[in-house]
Design a protein around this nucleic acid. Structure first.
Lengths: 133, 133
DNA sequence: CTGTATCCAGGAAGATACTG
DNA sequence: CAGTATCTTCCTGGATACAG
């Protein structure tokens, strides 16, 4: 728990960012922070057997375009968070599912979403106050 | 803990995204996912008494420009995550510190960073495999 | 149904110069 | 010291058309 006590630590001239692989941090957070990835992950989580077809995902995410769904799924697949299986049928069927790596990301992600749900109102209030000045 | 069992839940035609205020989710995640915010939050966390001057933050974040530091700090201030205090001295001094709201974000953020540190290598391996094909 | 390919607009961010 | 002001570049993402 973070309390607001004084700290004795020095300003730390050697920065902390280096010790934590800023490249990786930025890369992963950029993914999580992009416009659609998180909604896809959350959607996949909801499907029975953790599988969903392209068109099913599309239906669950209002506003997403075919292009962005494709692009974002490819990126998630590239990162190993989602797997993709093509069934050579007519019409074609493609199923996506979270990998175990992808599932493991859901927990920390949920924490963040809980924070958002808890504090969104307070953030908005602060923004309104700021904008009025 | 998420196991890989079959689920009995239906595909859920009514999507989950709506129930969670996708606007707020996207907005907050975009902040967290932007290029500099998280490094500023982490830097502020390290300072004694949670306070730091503009130039001190700058020194701790290699590669950030004055402009982006200013812009990002303003956004964080607007969201109520960081407070800003100007001391009318010569030369001028401005101190930034995390608000309690800002501090409360650090915990979920740390979870995410832990995930990154734990899994970054695996993600990169997956990317390399994907790119070779 | 599940994509690709192309073009385009808007915003994020870098470079640089200047200021109270 | 702590910013502002411009200009420019880059990249994300949207629209549209087409294909296997």
């Amino acid at each position: 728990m973070s309390t607001r006590e004084k700290r004795t630590a020095p300003p730390d001239p050697a920065n902390l960012c280096k010790s934590k692989d800023p490249g990786a941090i930025r890369e992963i957070l950029t993914k999580v922070g992009d416009k659609w990835s998180i909604f896809i992950l959350l959607t996949l989580e909801m499907f029975p057997d953790w599988r969903a077809r392209f068109s099913e995902i599309e239906k669950c995410i209002p506003g997403i375009s075919q292009k962005m769904l494709t692009v974002t799924l490819r990126n998630l697949e590239r990162d190993g968070l989602v797997s993709r299986e093509v069934f050579p049928e007519i019409p074609p069927r493609v199923e996506y599912q979270l990998t175990e790596l992808g599932e493991s990301l859901l927990d920390p992600l949920q924490n963040l979403l809980n924070w958002v749900n808890t504090n969104a109102e307070q953030v908005r209030a602060s923004q309104n106050r700021y904008d009025e000045k």
